[in-house]
């Protein structure tokens, strides 16, 4: 376990029980997932039962207990994007990357996810890779976008 890295995250907080979600978010950002041993340390340092930490870690979809890829690709399948072909876009990405939705490619480069809404319905269908939005994505635009991250 990389204790130094974890201490670096924990040192930014007062280690109150209420800091749980921000701490987990920072760990997720830094490690790309929530490692088991780190969660145990977090529970101890934040004076929380491990059961509660695990409960929070499994409740939110932004947290993952298995390593995510270097880039996380979120395809919106909310109402508007659904009507504009969000599902087809997700399937196209799934075929092109060779992974099922919710999984990570073998080279750990991409994790493909679907989300309920990215809040940009006017530009449907929308997808997001890491922190970048891609608006009005059609299936034929997919290879060009993916190339930037490969």
């Amino acid at each position: 376990m990389d204790l130094q890295r974890l201490e670096g995250i924990l040192s930014r907080y007062a280690c109150q029980p209420a800091d749980l979600i921000p701490v987990l978010q920072d760990i997720q950002d830094s490690y790309n997932y929530l490692p088991k041993d780190e969660l145990k340390v977090v529970a101890e340092r934040l004076h929380l039962p491990l059961a509660q930490v695990f409960s929070v870690a499994t409740f939110f979809t932004m947290f993952s207990l298995v390593p995510k890829g270097k880039h996380v690709c979120k395809v919106c399948v909310g109402t508007t994007c659904h009507l504009k072909g969000g599902q087809r876009l997700a399937e196209s990405l799934s075929n092109r990357l060779g992974v099922d939705i919710g999984y990570t490619t073998k080279d750990m480069n991409f994790t493909l996810e679907t989300v309920a809404c990215l809040g940009s319905c006017a530009q449907a269908p929308v997808m997001m890779i890491d922190d970048t939005y891609y608006a009005r994505v059609t299936v034929d635009k997919v290879p060009k976008i993916l190339k930037k991250y490969q």
């Binding site: 088991k36 039962p49 059961a51 509660q52 930490v53 695990f54 409960s55 499994t58 409740f59």
Partner: peptide, 22 residues
């Protein structure tokens, strides 16, 4: 606090942390 609710519906269930013996 050996057990807690894990996941969200429809997969929500009562479990020990990591589904391992607590």
């Amino acid at each position: 606090s050996a057990i807690g609710m894990i996941n969200r519906t429809p997969a929500k269930m009562v479990s020990t942390p990591f589904k391992e013996p607590s």
